[in-house]
Structure formats: structure tokens, C-alpha cells
Design a protein around this nucleic acid. Structure first.
Lengths: 278, 278
DNA sequence: GTGAACGGGTTTACGCCGTAAACCCTGCGG
DNA sequence: CCGCAGGGTTTACGGCGTAAACCCGTTCAC
């Protein structure tokens, strides 16, 4: 294979003719770009024709509501109204608001299971596995930008559950794939930590950035945007064009492959990750 | 200088005799370990002997209150009581709760200025600068674990302001140092993005992890901790010891140096970071 | 000296929140 | 026919953020 220890280059997007002209190519993880992230609640038990409250329906509605109106707008009363029901009715299925939010987080993260591109086991090597998982999580983050900060900040069940991978099942899956691929237990755990930090940092910043682009009350003035003083920050002004460019997808890909390369070299050399390579 | 293109190895902690035995050495960024992060409000105008509300005093009290009781416990009424004043009195200095929280975030981040180990300009090279800045931010995160999620998730003023570096001044500083050190504008901006993602991911996970260790209502049972079922996750069980170990400080250092190494190679080769190094 | 203005704090009041408790209502097994 | 239970509603309470009116010591122009 050419490229030495480089990460395998997979899932090229390949949209139109050449790559030399940097055409705007669609983000492969943008909502409905791929995979099943985004569809939430197919149905409850298929018996009842119409309403019938139900925990799954409630969580689905909550997610939809947050996606549409933002987390701060979600109240028990409004969620009830959205479901055509009185607020107190929700309490038969959910102990309270906090646990409702826990359920929202869990439900959103569980969309991973419905994503056909993400697998629990590594059929084509650990790098493919990690790539698919990372993009699956990214798809979720982009599909639910208002929910993702919740995924990131809600205190996990155990100290070693690290968002955004918040379920034992995925942790077990990740560690299994890694150890089966030749990582020592220490290296697998270190990889798990590095991987979760990477995902959390990148995706949290990406969704928060997306959030800001719309919100600044629509900038109705004639002069473009000189909101704050500026001027004492000449380099920021000079680089504003560069700074404002949104290269999230490419950056994510680049940083992810970089991380995987680093992990691969750890694996190949059988090091424990704290050591120097040299 | 020995070490080739390796990141300069600085600020070794050096506590006792040898390094070969991995003794528990203190975290250099733990509260009051170094630097001024943690002290918040020296005084307002030194004239008034006792009370006299004041925006700085309010923000300081709010930070202290959050540090002590958690973010959810902070209400205008309680903060007022904590200051010996009626809630409505706060509104003369702060437009509302949201802006109070914005002020809290800003104040906490501004503790960087008071940290003698962090400099706005690079006196000893960009890597030293970036190291110091990163550890300064980490010190802040560890000093205010309950505030840091706020630092991470509050929507920034502009889309290119990336937490945890939330002030134009530090962005200008960072970009200046990088471009002055031979980074192309593109590379400097890419470095800024990678650096903020790194800090955010690592520190958010670190503080959230710290938060969990205490909270699980003190685990009063005899059997250690078998809270959830487990058992279907044999590898997690097997690696539980490894997973529970807290190596935050070393991991932070290792990942940081790794990032800086990567940036250095980008700088040395004059690449734009998307390109392959080969 | 005196009265108007004013900064800074308090009181009162309103609407919304989460949620405990009591209350219906409808279908169903005996 | 009855009781009962599941599922939704009503009512009620305390706490929240905050608008508006109020009060009261200082200051300052005259």
C-alpha cells in the first residue's frame, strides 16, 4: 500500500470532476447528507392509531422542540402544549425536568444505532471504525446543534464515561475494537480519552459557531457589522476574512486523520502513549 | 539544542529526587499551585470601608457562589442575599441574569491577565507562549470547575471567537505571536482553531470528570459501586481500574506537546495545514 | 438654608416556572 | 352494577426573573 504508515484515505466524497478548483462541496455530515441521524421516533407500539402519550413520544417531541426553539425555551408546560396535553401529564412518564433532559441526551446519542454507516464492530480495521463513529457523532451534533451542548456538559454516570460517547455500549465497543486491533489496554484507554476529547472539542465549537451566525439580531444597519470597537486589534481585522471562513468539515477530517495517525504509531510501536517516540 | 524538532521541554515540575519511580507529584495547575488564578476581587475603589455594591463585587460574589454551590443554585435573590442586599439592587449594575452570567464568564477568563506565568507576548518562542497560555487556561478551569462549562458553551460574540479564548485581546495576541514566529496567516488561523478545540475538549472533560467523583450521593453502600448492571460489558469491567485512573495532568501535557509538535512541523515546512506532509 | 435632583437600595406586583396533591373520566373485570 | 385503576386535568404552592413604584440620605444650585 502506498503512503507508508499514513492513515488509510477513505470515504472520499467525490462530487464532481476535479479537485483543483476548491468548489463548495457539500458537507458529508450535514443533516440528511447521509445516515439516519435526525429521524427520531418512527412510532410507539403500532396499535394506538393517534395520540397516547408515551415516553418515546415525549422525548422525541422534546428533541424536536429544542431543535426548533432552543433549549431555554423548553418548559414542561410548553412541551405539554406541543403534545396537546397538560404539563402534568408528562410526569406520568418522566420523573421531572432534569430526567427529561437526561432522556433527551440519551435518545439523541442513541441515534448512532440507527446510522447505517456506523458499526459496533470493526469490519474494515479500527481506523475505518473510528472514522465512521466520529462522523456519526458529528452528524448527530449537526442535526441537533441545540442539544449537543447538553450532550457535552451533562454530568456523566461514571467518571470514566466521557461525552460525547455516553453509553457503556459504545465504550465497550470502542475498547474492544482497539484492543482487538493490537492496542495494549493502556493504549486503548488512552486512545479512548484522546478520541473523546477530540470529538467534544471540535464538535462543541462547530455547533456553537453555527449558532452564532444567525443570532446577532439580523444586523439591520447599513454599515456591515462593526459591532465592537475593533481597531486596537489590527491583526484580527486583517485576518477577519480568514477567521470567518467556515472550514469545519475539512478541519474535522484533517484533525481526525491526524489523531488516528498518531494512535496508529502508538499501536505499531507498542508504546504506552506517555512515552516519547524518538 | 538537543532534541531536534521536538517541542522544547520546559517547566518540568521537579519535586523530589528521581523520576523513575512514578510518585504522586502535585498537579502544577491545581488551585493555588501556581499563578494568580483563583483570586478574583482585590477591592473596588478603596474609599468605601464596607459595602457599597459595585459591578466587580457582584461578579466576584457570583463566581464565588457558583464555585461553592453550583451554577443551578445561583439566583438573583440568593446572590442578593449573599451580598446582604435585595435582589433588585443587583439590577442597577447588571441588566439581567443572562448578562450577569456573561460577566461571570468574562471575569473568569480575564483572570488570565493576573497570572504571572502567562504572557501576552512571546518572550521565549511561540511554543513557550502557547504552553504558558494553555496551562493558564487549565488553571482557571480547575479553579472554577462549575464555571468552566459556562465558558465553554455561552455563545461567543463573533463566530470566530472560539472558547475558551473568549476575548479579542487574546486572539490578537495569539495570532500575532504565531505570525511573528513564521506561521503564514492561514497556518496561524488554523493553529488558533486547533488550539482552541484542544483546550476546550480536554478541559471540559477534565472538569466534568472532577465533578462526578464527588456527586454520586456519597455511595453509602457496602458493595463498592455496582450502580448499573454491568456484566454485559466485560472489557469495561476488566479495564475499570485503568479507566478510573486520573491521569489528566500528564495527558494534558502529552496532548498539548503533541499538538505543538504538529504545529511546529506545519510552520517549519511552510505548509498550509490541510496539505499532506508525506 | 432650602428645595430639587439624584444615586442606591427596598417594596410591591406580575407572570411564568416546576411540581405535589386532589380530582375527574372512561373502560373493564368481577 | 360495581369498584377500580390508568391516564389525563385542575388546583395550588413556593420560587423564579424582573418591571414599576417607592423611599431616603447626599449633593448642589440658588
Amino acid at each position: 500500500m502506498p503512503g507508508g504508515t499514513r492513515a488509510t484515505r477513505r470515504r472520499e466524497v467525490r462530487v464532481d470532476g476535479e479537485d483543483t478548483i476548491p468548489m463548495r462541496r457539500p458537507d458529508p455530515d450535514s443533516p440528511e447528507g447521509r445516515g439516519g441521524a435526525g429521524i427520531v421516533v418512527p412510532a410507539g407500539p403500532p396499535s394506538t392509531g393517534r395520540a397516547g402519550l408515551d415516553r418515546r413520544r415525549i422525548l422525541g417531541a422534546a428533541i424536536e422542540y429544542i431543535d426548533r426553539h432552543g433549549l431555554a425555551a423548553l418548559t414542561m408546560r410548553r412541551l405539554g402544549a406541543h403534545l396537546g396535553v397538560e404539563a402534568m401529564a408528562l410526569y406520568r412518564y418522566v420523573p421531572g425536568r432534569e430526567q427529561l433532559l437526561d432522556g433527551v441526551v440519551e435518545t439523541v446519542v442513541d441515534e448512532l444505532y440507527g446510522d447505517p454507516e456506523v458499526h459496533l464492530r470493526a469490519a474494515h480495521g479500527w481506523q475505518d471504525y473510528a472514522q465512521r463513529l466520529a462522523h456519526g457523532v458529528r452528524r448527530i451534533a449537526l442535526a441537533h446543534p441545540e442539544v449537543f451542548p447538553l450532550v457535552a456538559t451533562r454530568p456523566p454516570a461514571a467518571p470514566w464515561v466521557r461525552p460525547p460517547l455516553r453509553s457503556l455500549r459504545w465504550i465497550e465497543s470502542f475498547l474492544t475494537v482497539m484492543t482487538d486491533s493490537g492496542f495494549s489496554p493502556e493504549a486503548a484507554v488512552a486512545a479512548y480519552r484522546a478520541y473523546s476529547s477530540f470529538l467534544l472539542g471540535h464538535l462543541l465549537l462547530e455547533v456553537s459557531q453555527k449558532g452564532v451566525q444567525i443570532t446577532p439580531e439580523d444586523a439591520p444597519e447599513g454599515v456591515p457589522d462593526t459591532g465592537t470597537d475593533l481597531g486596537q486589534y489590527p491583526l484580527v481585522v486583517e485576518l477577519e476574512e480568514l477567521l470567518s471562513r467556515d472550514e469545519s468539515a475539512a478541519e474535522f477530517e484533517e484533525a481526525l486523520e491526524n489523531l488516528l495517525d498518531r494512535l496508529e504509531s502508538v499501536r505499531a510501536e507498542g508504546r504506552v502513549p506517555g512515552e516519547r517516540s524518538e
